[in-house]
């Protein structure tokens, strides 16, 4: 494939779209930040892209609940196209607020069902949590996390990141089906308590994918650790780069 084209959906309050664009460009993709209003006038345009990203931030001021209004807007006005995109197997990612959007519109954990069966609720601390965390890269089917080390580090910054499945059956399905991608852990990979686990997610889940592995959502921010220089100790994963770059690279390479 020629240079893959990534669509980054932005709206009032999204604030990680530039970083995501730069990350894709660094990895050899062409990335466009398109306002959701523009997509509403030409929804079919969505299907002309190869990768879809819903970025982090505070869409619509996080009014009502984080990601809720954008999820409602996308589902009701662009839902058919977004679902088709996801079911086609093309890479889709939601980061932080974008993860909240994907879960609340029902694209995760099961885009075929396209109904909300999980949520991201208030952190157990009741506060906004902003720090670097360690994540265990679980054995999973996600195309975005191929060849990452077992333990990685990424920054989080959220007030509503506690992953909760609708019921025990849904949780079991996600777990049994290897859809849990990342869990919060300590640096040595052991079970984390607060503050290493910033929000008290069920089973310390910080990222999940769909059954096919092409739709991925996570609370941490890979676009904020593309270069080693962005790490507080300047630690790199791949020479001068951070492990966040690898996540974007995997999606781009998958299309080549």
């Amino acid at each position: 494939m020629a240079m893959p084209k990534a669509l980054i959906i932005r709206t009032a309050g999204t604030n990680c779209d530039f970083e995501a664009q730069k990350a894709f460009e660094l990895c050899g993709a062409k990335a466009e930040r398109i306002h959701v209003n523009e997509l509403l006038t030409s929804a079919s345009k969505i299907l002309s892209y190869d990768i879809l990203l819903v970025p982090g931030g505070f869409s619509y001021g996080d009014d009502i609940a984080s990601g809720k209004i954008l999820a409602n807007e996308i589902k009701n006005k662009l839902g058919d196209k977004i679902k088709r995109f996801a079911l086609s197997g093309k890479p889709v990612i939601g980061i932080c607020n974008g993860f909240q959007v994907l879960v609340k519109m029902g694209l995760l954990p099961d885009p075929e069902l396209f109904d909300q069966t999980a949520t991201l609720s208030y952190n157990d601390s009741g506060r906004f949590e902003c720090r670097w965390v360690y994540l265990k890269n679980e054995k999973n089917k996600c195309l975005w996390t191929k060849d990452l080390p077992e333990i990685i580090t990424l920054p989080v910054a959220h007030g509503e990141g506690k992953f909760i499945a609708a019921n025990s059956e849904t949780l079991k399905e996600i777990e049994d089906n290897s859809q849990v991608v990342f869990r919060y852990v300590n640096a040595d990979g052991s079970k984390a308590d607060y503050p290493a686990d910033p929000n008290g997610s069920v089973n310390a889940i910080s990222g999940i994918c769909n059954d096919k592995g092409n739709v991925f959502g996570l609370m941490p921010h890979p676009e904020r650790y593309v270069y080693a220089l962005q790490h507080p100790a300047r630690e790199g994963f791949d020479g001068k780069y951070g492990c966040g770059k690898k996540i974007f690279q995997n999606a781009v390479d998958y299309l080549k």
């Binding site: 809720k68 209004i69 409602n72 909300q116 069966t117 949520t119 609720s121």
Partner: peptide, 9 residues
């Protein structure tokens, strides 16, 4: 149901 409350919590 659709907007103001979270369906899960």
């Amino acid at each position: 149901w659709e907007i103001l409350s979270d369906k899960i919590t």
